[in-house]
Amino acid sequence: MEHARHVFRIALVLLVVITAIFLGRGFLVPRSYGTFGPYRADNVAEQMKIRPPAHAGAASCAPCHKAKSEAHDAGGHKAVSCEVCHAPLLRHVTNGTVSGKMPVDRSFTLCARCHRRIQGRPDKFPQVILEQHVTSKLEGAVCLDCHDPHSPKP
């Protein structure tokens, strides 16, 4: 019986280690871990509602801004969504009510981002050499003196 004490001692140590591993695992591994794979499954649903969608698309502007929207849809910028030049709808409307002023950027730099002639743009895309195209001072809303951004001539 004396030699069996070694066995008991080792069995006890093993038992303690195994219990500690299981308890530690229970504390450290999230509940939903492993449901679909080696990750926390709850995170998938969390990612789906991580934040409300900010961009709502051009169609969402039409109900309130009918005239602007119709002019836009008939012009050369019809493929350019309202939110490209303005801002995501969420900045302006929250839960169906107006919550803030929509930014309006009238500066020539906004137009220049697409239409300034630089290396890289496809040749057929309408673009101008700013310094040659604008004879007056290149500042502020100089583009809007001649062009209507909502419905520019092709």
């Binding site: 789906m48 991580i50 934040r51 969608p53 961009h55 910028h77 969504s81």
Partner: peptide, 19 residues
């Protein structure tokens, strides 16, 4: 934009791409 595509919307980059 997993929060958008799971609601039937496009990712924001696709939504605003003008070309």
């Amino acid at each position: 934009c997993y929060h958008r595509i799971t609601k039937g919307l496009k990712p924001a980059c696709v939504e605003v791409c003008p070309t």
